[in-house]
Design a binder for these strands. Structure first.
Length: 674
DNA sequence: AGCACGCCGACT
DNA sequence: GTCGGCGTGCTC
């Protein structure tokens, strides 16, 4: 007998080993095995048993020993790992490594092998549920989930509810229903650190049954939580992206909160999207998938329209008060010299003034940190660029440095142009630092704080900023999109969006969608209960549908417009994308490899013609990163079936054609094309 | 990914 | 004369 073993190496294949008869019983799929591999022994995961020896010239090696008494992964998990490997074109061993605590693949982990025994299920206990009065919409959503759970059939539901509409109650009731059935629940969040209140509610609702699983855990903690779930000591898992692999063996429901959030997509191999994997896992498990958002992704909403997903909406805000009033300020009609920088419109300045008078807090949002976007020589027009990434360096005036926002490169702030030696350097384009300076000019007495990567990375700095905000000490908080994530600032009644056009016109087909989501999420932060909130959006294109839809809090009008554009251009959800990026020290090698792949794809036919339209090869939007040149091919397919064929064609080409010095990264369903 | 094998510069 | 630089090639 033989077994196919996935080893943690970046190769698409498994390796076949002979199994000694003494280990035949124990060598089950999902069990780890110690195998001889390239002059040393390594730990891999048995994917399947087979009677057929591998088709290789050399001698088949024999596995040395098994690391577990019983499998770590059940059949559903193994099938899920295979699906991820195929769909995302990721090496199976890398998928396995992402799915299990990495300690499980280190030799030291062998010591604890005896600890991993058979999973035993906890008895179904009666949960003492606190009686809560649900709104009609909440009750309807809960009834819906409970009915589907009762049928034990796979189903996906979109729960569309604005901030404060009470999605959490529906989540809790759904998980409770799964637990009462003797099944388990998986609760996914984009970022764990930003939602302590939500986590506290879940752990309080299900005392001692919740395991937290996220990237912030130490290796020992991760193993501990993994074991609690595997053995059934905990039957609810709350976690981020990687929690999609939680060892729950009788899964009843998977909840994906803020399903539109980009944090669910892993940006290195395996480049999976945890929301999409959640739906596949639910399908394999016969479980319920519940996707929640105030601003659902177009992909998810499209599945509602195609009747693949159920749609439930929570239109009211039982706890949140009325939705804020959103004002769009046309910056074309503003005088250019309101202040030194021309950053603030009259309406925003008036509203700021009034809010300060009333003793209430304000958030100003600008999606660019630092002082200025670039430093330009007034005499010769040269700008300072990163030598490794070839993009404009951002001026950070507080620390007197020019910094590259793509890599770690920085230089002390120069005083002369390096091209012509002139001393007249102009800082162009505003970042959060400049907003802070301009504000201090206008309101010298006011307590202003900045919340971006520069001010939050120092130890404890982030917490201090949040404390000052909650205590009311900070009157105006300036921030990048960091502030839009998760935080609740009950005292904030005014939100100003500076330069809304920045995110709107990024060279990315999702720019409109992101802007709409961003504005809606930010607007959701303004005002609570009895205090109505106000949002002021400064833009040069107030007629843009993203802004208008966000202004009127109308998701449906946004979707209708955006779908039209996507359909015309064959972008998701009306088509599938694969981005192939070729990276090399040599630009010509990267470019020629990309061209070779393009030629191969246009020649190849897999069971009929290959229906793919190819954009490129072209330099990637970040044409040079950390000293390496990047060229890319964007492949557009009409549907998933065509995409599978294209995937196969890419796989055969890249394995046959081993161009030296070129790294190929395939991104299936890319979230951005950078 | 590792890790070995394989041909060209500065050290005892 | 060697030690070692990291290019390239393979892993059941």
């Amino acid at each position: 007998m033989y077994v196919n073993v996935a080893l943690p190496v970046p190769l698409m294949q498994t390796f076949t080993y002979a199994v000694p008869s003494s280990l035949a019983q124990q060598a089950q799929p999902g069990t780890r095995a110690l195998v001889p591999f390239r002059h040393r022994e390594r730990i891999g995961l048995i994917m399947e048993q087979t009677e057929t020896p591998p088709n290789i010239t050399g001698r088949v090696k024999t596995l040395s020993e098994l690391c577990d008494k019983s499998p770590l992964c059940d059949d559903i998990m193994l099938e899920l790992l295979q699906w991820i490997s195929r769909y995302y074109m990721a090496p199976i061993g890398e998928v396995c490594r992402a799915a299990l605590p990495s300690a499980f693949f280190r030799r030291a982990a062998l010591a604890r092998k005896s600890r991993i025994g058979l999973a035993h299920m906890t008895d179904v206990e009666t949960l003492d549920s606190v009686p809560i009065v649900f709104t009609a919409a909440q009750q309807q959503a809960i009834d819906h989930s409970q009915r589907l759970l009762g049928e034990c059939l796979f189903h996906t539901t979109l729960l569309h509810g604005v901030t404060g509409s009470g999605k959490t109650e529906v989540y809790l009731a759904t998980m409770e229903a799964a637990i009462k059935q003797g099944r388990q629940a998986l609760f996914m969040l984009p970022e764990i650190g930003l939602t302590p209140q939500l986590l506290a509610r879940v752990t309080a609702h299900f005392p001692d049954r919740v395991a937290l699983y996220h990237s912030g855990l130490t290796e020992a903690q991760r193993v501990e939580q993994w074991l609690r779930l595997h053995t059934g000591a905990a039957d609810i898992c709350c976690g981020t992206r990687s929690a999609i692999f939680a060892p729950l063996h009788n899964l009843g429901c998977i909840i994906v909160d803020e399903e539109h959030d980009g944090a669910y997509k892993q940006e290195e191999s395996p480049r999976y999207h945890a929301r999409d994997v959640a739906v596949v896992r639910a399908k394999l498990s016969g479980a319920l998938a519940l996707l929640g958002s105030a601003t659902p992704s177009l992909e998810t909403y499209h599945n509602v329209e195609r009747k693949k997903y159920h749609y439930l909406s929570l239109p009211d805000r039982p706890t949140g008060g009325p939705l804020p009033e959103v004002m769009l300020v046309d910056m074309r009609k503003e005088p250019t010299s309101n202040d030194a920088s021309g950053l603030f419109s009259r309406p925003l300045l008036q509203a700021l003034d009034a809010n300060l008078q009333a003793g209430e807090q304000t958030i100003l949002f600008l999606n660019r940190r630092g002082f200025s976007q670039l430093l330009l020589c007034r005499d010769c027009g040269a700008i300072f660029r990163c030598p490794d990434c070839d993009i404009a360096l951002t001026l950070h005036r507080r620390v007197a440095e020019l910094r590259c926002h793509y890599c770690e490169f920085s230089i002390p702030r120069p005083t002369t142009c390096r091209e012509c030696g002139a001393t007249h350097l102009k800082a162009m384009g505003s970042g959060t630092e400049r907003i802070e300076d301009a504000l201090l000019e206008h309101f010298p007495q006011v307590s202003i704080a900045r919340f971006d990567r520069d001010t939050t990375t120092a130890r404890g700095a982030r917490q201090q900023l949040l404390r000052d905000m909650h205590s009311g000490k900070t009157e105006i908080l300036i921030g990048t999109q960091m502030i839009t994530k998760g935080h609740d600032f009950p005292g904030v009644t005014l939100v100003g969006i500076m330069q809304a056009d920045l995110s709107l016109y990024l060279p990315d087909f999702r720019a409109s969608e992101r802007t709409f989501q961003l504005l809606t999420q930010v607007a959701g932060r303004a005002g609570r209960r009895n205090k109505p909130g106000r949002v002021i959006v400064q833009t040069f294109t107030p007629e843009h549908y993203s802004l208008l839809a966000a202004q009127s809090h109308n998701y449906m009008t946004f979707v209708a417009k955006e779908e039209t554009h996507r359909r015309e251009l064959g972008y998701p959800p009306y088509g599938k994308l694969i981005n192939v990026r070729c990276t090399s020290n040599s630009e010509s090698k990267a470019a020629s490899f990309a061209q070779g792949l393009r030629d191969a794809l246009s020649r190849v036919t897999v069971g009929g013609t290959l229906d793919v339209s190819i954009v490129g090869p072209a330099p990637a939007p970040r044409a040079k990163l950390a000293g390496r040149h990047r060229w890319q091919l964007l492949l557009k397919m009409k549907n998933a079936a065509d995409m599978r064929k294209v995937s196969e064609a890419i796989a055969t080409h890249t394995t046959n054609q081993t161009e030296s010095g070129v790294q190929v990264a395939v991104d299936v369903d890319p979230l951005h094309l950078l």
